Structure formats: C-alpha cells, structure tokens
Amino acid sequence: MMDAALNQSTIVALGGGGFSMSESGTSAIDDYLLELATTVRDKRSTEAHHRRGGRGASVLPRVCFVPTASGDNPDYIHRFEAAFDGRAETHVLSMFGQSPWGYQDPKMLQDMDLIYVGGGSTANLLTLWRDHGVDDIMALAASRGTILAGISAGANCWFEASSTDSFGPLAPLSDGLGLIPGSACPHYHGEPGRAETFRTWIEAGQLPGPGLAIDDHAAVVFENFRATSVIAEKSEAHAYIVDERGETRLDRDVT
C-alpha cells in the first residue's frame, strides 16, 4: 500500500519525448531532469560531507532507468545509456534479468537521485512492480527526495487511472499507483483517438477527473503531488486539464 503520509516529492510526467523520441538522443526535457537530479546529488553530497566534517564535492547524479513496461527492451536501454553517458552515473533496474544488466534488488532505487521510467505497457508495468514490491520502494524513494520521472506508461503509472493501449485498443485503466490524484493521458495529440476517447471517458465518469492530458515533447512537473509547471521542448507541445466541461490548456515554459 502507498503511504498517504508522504510529505515531499518531485514527479515529472512526460506525454512522450525525451531520449526515446529524439533522433540525436538529445532532449531539453532530459536536460531539465538532469538539472533536478544534480541538485539532489549535490545536496546529498554536501550533507554527507558535513556529517563527516569535510566539504561537499560535486559528483555526477545517479540515474536509474526502469524499462519494465517495454519488457526491458535492450535497444531502449542502450538508447538511455547513450543519452546519459558522461552526464550521469547510469543504472538499469531489469525486472526480467536481461543480460548484461541482470536482476537486481529493487531496493537499489533508494540510492538514486533520478528514477526514469520508460514507456510500453502500463498494465504489465503495474503488475510486475507490485509482484516485486517496486511500488512501495518508489514511494519511499520519492519521500526521501529522489526525482521520479516517466514517459507514456512511465507517466501513467503515478496516477490513479489512465488511458492505455496495454490491451490493444485504447481503454481506460483504473489501476494506477495513486501517487497523483485523477487520471492521465499521454500522447494526447500524437496518436489517433487519444484525445477523443480520453475526453469521453472523463465526461462519462469512466476515468476519474480532472484528467491530465500531455502531448508528446511536453511534461508536467509535480511538487508534493500537485502540478506546479509545464515544460515543453517543442512549440506545439502542451498539457491540458480535462473535465466534464471540456479541456483547458495549461501555461508552460518552452525549454
């Protein structure tokens, strides 16, 4: 069960984008995530040195990619490692024991500054995480200041419910971790049917509102489980609040 007493967290939900949708592997949203992670790492390093009576030293942030939703697709993992090479100490949590990464105890997530969850099947991700206790570990890591971020299924998972194609056709899924209230829809204007079905499900009460719809190349930043800003790496990318009255586009910063 999730701990309702969590009192601090930063979660970044990407509708799509980041290194996984970049031909060059570069991404302004990923750069932003690294800035957040570096701040966390610097703070932790300074506090550790102060406890030992020394001075804080600048070190690379620890970033773990969690590709559960893609079945630990090796190409996806290699894209992550290439995108963050030299900019972070990279780690991979493989729930499938993929070589060369192998199965690791999910408790390793507690040592990360940024946990970056990949896209794929939201339903499969949630099932495996619960079987391995990853859901509780994620919540604990967030409560201790680790940044949580995710693309598509990796964004859906933090909400109570979401729009997913985990079962083939788009369908409502009321089985999220519930760290963030309401429901989510990634790829809002990027994939056929996403916008229309999400609005219909919200209006009919099949998904809890208000809903958060996020375009590819846009991300919503949550502080203490409340949306505080929208960032985008393309001018046409936006995020929207969707309720029974329709959709409202949120203000954003273009990075």
Results as ranks from 00 to 15, higher is better:
3 D>T: 13
21 M>C: 04
25 G>C: 04
26 T>C: 03
34 L>R: 04
35 E>H: 07
37 A>Q: 06
41 R>A: 10
42 D>P: 05
43 K>Q: 05
44 R>P: 00
51 R>E: 11
53 G>C: 03
59 V>A: 15
63 V>D: 02
70 S>F: 08
76 Y>R: 09
77 I>V: 11
84 F>V: 00
87 R>K: 04
92 V>A: 05
93 L>G: 00
95 M>W: 06
97 G>A: 10
98 Q>Y: 08
98 Q>A: 14
99 S>C: 02
103 Y>E: 14
110 Q>C: 11
111 D>G: 04
112 M>Y: 00
114 L>Q: 01
120 G>P: 12
126 L>Y: 03
128 L>C: 11
149 A>C: 11
150 G>A: 10
151 I>K: 03
153 A>D: 07
157 C>T: 06
158 W>E: 02
159 F>C: 06
168 G>Y: 05
174 S>G: 12
175 D>M: 08
175 D>L: 09
183 S>T: 10
183 S>H: 13
192 P>R: 02
198 F>T: 07
198 F>D: 06
198 F>I: 07
199 R>W: 09
208 P>I: 01
209 G>H: 11
211 G>N: 04
211 G>L: 04
216 D>N: 15
216 D>P: 12
217 H>P: 14
226 R>A: 13
226 R>S: 13
227 A>P: 14
233 E>K: 06
241 I>R: 07
242 V>M: 08
246 G>C: 09
247 E>H: 00
248 T>V: 14
255 T>S: 10
